[in-house]
């Protein structure tokens, strides 16, 4: 059993009167590959927002590497090693694709490298996700699919300890899904903990060691990919069976 990297304790978040997260608790081990599933509107993105600091949770605590990060601003969490991609891409539109990666490389990545190194590393990461050719184009002109790839690359560029990918594969072809799975797998082999939110079941099943299913802001089930598909509650809530 390796060390605990992330601990979410009783986290709750409401929007007005609507409860998006209802006392969610979970733990992620260092080096783990965790799948997070759940129907539309079940609170997956909201949970990621609370972990990355894009939103502050109303109640509960979040610990990262044993440190309480519940009230820390997002940039501190990014520097501590939490990186996330955005489900709805948020590229830095006035910057080129390459510069989009330079921002996290220069601001979040540990042991900040010189400008030359940052460019080289950014290019390597673009190569990985297949955007090398577009490095010097304006990111605003990318297709939706390429923007998703850029999201993933930008999260990787922060050189995180924990990488959370929020539906990075939506809209990709099955070959591209396999490519992205390969990338995430390699990152994981290199010691990076990966939390993957995905609607593409095939991807979740193939990638995850453990799967957590959210429904209406609550964790309804947790287990191996095999056990999750058997779970009656998951089938009802998620698979619509």
């Amino acid at each position: 059993m390796s060390a605990e990297l992330l601990r979410v304790t009783n986290v709750g978040k409401s929007f007005g009167g609507f409860v998006a997260l209802d006392r969610v608790s979970l733990r992620v081990r260092a080096g783990e590959r965790l799948g997070l599933i759940g129907p539309n509107g079940s609170g997956k993105t909201t949970l990621i927002n609370c972990i990355s600091g894009a939103l502050y949770n109303d109640v509960g605590e979040i610990h990262f590497e044993g440190r309480d990060i519940t009230r820390l601003p997002p940039y501190v969490r990014a520097r501590a090693g939490i990186a996330r991609s955005f489900q709805i891409p948020k590229p830095f539109r006035s910057l080129t694709v390459l510069e989009n990666l330079q921002v996290p490389l220069e601001y979040a990545a540990r042991g900040r490298a010189g400008a030359r190194r940052a460019t080289d590393e950014a290019l390597e990461m673009l190569e990985l996700v297949g955007l090398r050719e577009r490095a010097h184009e304006d990111s605003a002109g990318l297709t939706q699919v390429d923007m998703r790839k850029l999201e993933l690359a930008r999260a990787m560029a922060a050189k995180p300890r924990l990488l959370i990918s929020d539906e990075a594969m939506a809209g990709l072809s099955s070959t591209e899904v396999d490519e992205v799975l390969g990338i995430l797998r390699r990152l994981n082999d290199a010691g990076i903990t990966v939390v993957m939110i995905e609607h593409i079941m095939y991807a979740v099943m193939r990638f995850s060691e453990r799967v957590i299913c959210l429904d209406a802001g609550q964790i309804i089930c947790e287990g191996t990919p095999e056990s999750i598909v058997q779970d009656a509650g998951v089938q009802r809530a998620y698979l619509g069976a």
Binding site: S52, G53, A54, P73, P74, Y75, A78, R79, A83, R84, F86, K90, P91, F92, R93, S94, L95, E99, Q102, V103, P104, E106, Y107, A108, A109, R154, A157, A158
Partner: peptide
């Protein structure tokens, strides 16, 4: 580049480590 990131998207900038 940090300022440009803020101009384009403050939340994404913060999550990329920029102290906005």
């Amino acid at each position: 580049r940090g300022l440009s990131a803020i101009r384009d998207d403050e939340v994404a900038a913060e999550c990329a480590g920029v102290p906005t």
